[in-house]
């Protein structure tokens, strides 16, 4: 039986979530406690040492990320519960964390729970992921993103990414330390978590870091600081070049 805690400042959301879990997942999940603030959340986690936390991002006295930073016990999975908040969602995605939207859709909840149970075989990086999401959420200067491969979890500074190249459902991230990180996500999903100001989708299957572009060759590609060549699609050329070379 999985021990779960609900942390949300709105009682109606907690009630709704509890009803749904009780009605559909009572055979696997037992909700052991609820909390409505950062302070009570930290306390409740320490007290119950849960396996799963449903965590709201925006709380009255802070954020869900703050709670995770403050607790010592970290052996749990998190499913963020958030309203329609673009910034929060992006922060969660940057940390490669999971979330569901309010109001809660049964299908989405079900998927998130299945995933959490699958992941629960040890997620030692949780603290790291939370830290990155939190940094993003609070608007830290040096942004990092998380890339999960089959074996590893990479935390990469955006400034170190040269470009990304995709092949169908796989995307490879090339860094200025000659790392190649291949993840099983279409390039569209990668584009979503990268900062719009730093990266530009220059081609159907390529995203490039504007800061690393050295020049544009008339043959239709960009030359990067390490002499790597990245193609530019003809139709997007004008837009891409204006983004790269007119950015002030």
């Amino acid at each position: 039986m999985i021990k779960a805690i609900l942390i949300d400042d709105e009682a109606s959301v907690r009630k709704n979530l509890r009803e749904k879990i009780d009605a559909h997942f009572s055979d696997r999940i037992a909700i052991v406690a609820e909390a409505a603030s950062v302070a009570s959340g930290v306390e409740t986690i320490a007290q119950h040492q849960p396996d799963l936390i449903f965590l709201d991002v925006n709380l009255q006295d802070g954020t869900g990320f703050d709670i995770i930073q403050q607790v010592e016990y970290k052996e749990f999975e998190i499913i963020f519960v958030t309203g329609f908040d673009k910034h929060a969602i992006k922060a969660i995605k940057v940390g490669a964390l999971d979330y569901i939207l309010k109001p809660i859709d049964l299908e989405e909840l079900s998927e998130a729970i299945e995933k959490a149970i699958d992941n629960s075989q040890g997620n030692s990086q949780l603290e790291k992921l939370i830290e990155i999401s939190r940094d993003y959420f609070h608007g830290s200067k040096k942004k990092r993103v998380i890339f999960r491969t089959a074996e590893n979890v990479y935390a990469v500074y955006e400034e170190n990414i040269l470009y990304c190249s995709s092949d169908g459902n796989y995307t490879t991230i090339f860094t200025d330390r000659s790392e190649k990180i291949m993840i099983s996500k279409p390039i569209k999903k990668v584009e979503e978590i990268l900062s719009e100001e730093v990266f530009v989708r220059c081609h159907q299957s390529h995203i490039v870091n504007v800061a690393h572009v050295v020049k544009y060759s008339k043959q239709g590609y960009l030359v990067l600081s390490d002499d790597e060549k990245v193609p530019v699609s003809n139709r997007r050329k004008d837009y891409v070049l204006s983004r790269i070379f007119n950015a002030s």
């Binding site: 329609f84 109001p103 859709d105 049964l106």
Partner: peptide, 12 residues
């Protein structure tokens, strides 16, 4: 209720 949730997603 279910319908409403779906609608909220669509509306978003």
């Amino acid at each position: 209720g279910n319908y409403l949730v779906k609608f909220s997603r669509l509306l978003r």
